[in-house]
C-alpha cells in the first residue's frame, strides 16, 4: 500500500497571522525597552513586521526570522531615536488599560512590580541608544556577544565596551535611585518586588 504524501497549503493570511503571533511580543518589548515609549514602540514594531511580511519567503526559518527581526527592530529603534532625539517616555502604566488578568491581583504586589519595571525603564533611559540596545540584547534577551555585535553591526570589542559602560551606568543609576550609600561595601541594589531570575 502506498502512502500518498499530502502537502498542506497554508493560506497566506493564516501564515502571516501565525508569524506575527509568534514574534510580536518579543519584538515589541525589545523596541519598547529601547525607545521607552509605548506609542512609538507600537509604530516601529508595526513597520518592522510589515517589512518582514513583504519578504516572508526569506523568513521561513524561524531562527533566522527571529535574528533578522531583532536586527531590524533594534536598528529601526536606534534610527528613530537618532532622528528624533531623546523620546519622551510613556510609562507602560500610562499606556493601555490594565489587563483583565490583572484585575483582582494583589495591588501591593502590582505596585511593586510596576515600580520595578519603571525603575528598570528609567535606568535604561540613562544610557545611550547603542548601550541600551547592547544591554537589552545581552543581559535581558540573553543573546551571546557575537549576536549582539551582528545585530548592532559592530565588532565584539565595541559590544564589550558598550556593555561595560551600560552596566556601570546602570549600577550608578540604581544606587542613586534607591538611595543606597555609594560605599562599595553597601548591600547590592535590587529591584523592588521581584525575585532575581536565576
Amino acid at each position: 500500500m502506498h502512502e500518498r504524501a499530502e502537502t498542506v497549503v497554508v493560506p497566506p493570511v493564516d501564515r502571516r497571522s501565525a508569524f506575527v503571533e509568534l514574534h510580536l511580543k518579543r519584538v515589541f518589548v525589545l523596541v519598547y525597552r529601547i525607545v521607552g515609549n509605548v506609542a512609538d514602540a507600537q509604530d516601529i514594531t508595526q513597520d518592522v513586521f510589515i517589512k518582514a511580511l513583504q519578504r516572508e519567503d526569506q523568513l521561513r526559518d524561524s531562527a533566522k526570522a527571529t535574528q533578522w527581526l531583532h536586527r531590524i527592530a533594534s536598528n529601526a529603534a536606534i534610527d528613530f531615536l537618532r532622528r528624533r532625539g531623546r523620546a519622551p517616555q510613556t510609562a507602560i502604566e500610562d499606556g493601555p488599560e490594565l489587563s483583565d488578568a490583572s484585575r483582582g491581583a494583589d495591588p501591593e504586589q502590582m505596585l511593586l512590580r510596576g515600580e520595578s519595571h519603571q525603575l528598570f525603564q528609567d535606568a535604561l533611559q540613562s544610557l545611550t541608544p547603542r548601550e541600551r540596545t547592547a544591554l537589552v540584547l545581552r543581559d535581558v534577551e540573553g543573546l551571546p556577544a557575537e549576536s549582539v555585535a551582528q545585530t548592532l553591526g559592530c565588532s565584539k570589542a565595541t559590544v564589550r565596551s558598550h556593555i561595560a559602560n551600560a552596566r556601570v551606568k546602570f549600577r550608578k543609576f540604581l544606587r542613586r535611585r534607591v538611595q543606597v550609600s555609594t560605599s562599595p561595601t553597601a548591600p547590592p541594589v535590587e529591584f523592588p518586588g521581584e525575585e532575581a531570575a536565576e
Binding site: 511580543k25 518579543r26 518589548v29 525597552r33 507602560i92 502604566e93 499606556g95 493601555p96 490594565l98 489587563s99 488578568a101 490583572s102 491581583a105 502590582m110 512590580r113 510596576g114 520595578s116 519595571h117 528598570f120 544591554l135 543581559d139 535581558v140 534577551e141 540573553g142 529591584f191 521581584e194 525575585e195 531570575a197
Partner: peptide, 11 residues
C-alpha cells in the same frame, strides 16, 4: 535583568 524580557503582568 531577564525578568524584564516580558511585560508586567498587569499590562
Amino acid at each position: 535583568l531577564p525578568q524584564f524580557r516580558d511585560l508586567p503582568p498587569y499590562f
